[in-house]
Design a protein around this nucleic acid. Sequence first.
DNA 1: AAATGAAACAACCGCCATGCG
DNA 2: TCGCATGGCGGTTGTTTCATT
Length: 245
Amino acid sequence: MGRQPCCDKLGVKKGPWTAEEDKKLISFILTNGHCCWRAVPKLAGLLRCGKSCRLRWTNYLRPDLKRGLLTEAEEQLVIDLHARLGNRWSKIAAKLPGRTDNEIKNHWNTHIKKKLLKMGIDPVTHEPIDRQPSLQKSSQSTAATESKSDDLQLQSQGCEGQNHSSENSSPPEESSNTSSNDPVVGSLWEEDIPLIDESWMFPCNEDDYSSVVGPLPWEGSSEWLLDYQDFGIGDMGLGSSAIEN
DNA sequence: AAATGAAACAACCGCCATGCG
DNA sequence: TCGCATGGCGGTTGTTTCATT
């Protein structure tokens, strides 16, 4: 047990990030990049653990993120990818530029799962529900059209009750999914080419950064940005000064 | 208008894989 | 080869927002 925790719990702030913290983190990373997440909070003057900083950056502050709901096409791609990859959200996210694993995971759990259930498709196996033995015995309405009550049944039977504990995070091997028919998705399988935007490789230098993503890449993404515009990255001087500390 | 419940989203936790000394 | 530090991932929980009664 001599292992050092990722962050000492004392003096480490938790909970929602404030606009001020966001600004500090953004400014620091744009100025210095992140060589080592563990060091970032200290250098940036944040009372957070490195893990929290990394998460905040990758899931919310990263300038190349798309905000807003997934489009129909994206949603379909997620479904196809999930059929193939299972709950490997990071792999799935890698195929959707500008989307994070957390975002996709949330969207899956809140939207897509229900949508599939309504369609009579098991979100875990991607098989039609009425073709699943464990469900057939329960002779309840298989109805793709019926939803509400089915949702509840399936969440206990389809998701947990299907001996998927081990497969849960692994792909249902070569299942008869729809992806192979999809030219776009199909191409993804053949090569593991990440569909990553060029902008993902954004420069750490603020000037270069601006030239790539524009002066206010996060404009409108959240309230703090309004303040942020007034603030101005360059005026903050947090980066270099923080390092000197 | 207030209370309650549901949905959506953000963040945390614990585990695992990898790199390095 | 081993042990530790770190980053990353997936699951889960907490908080906020929205809808309904």
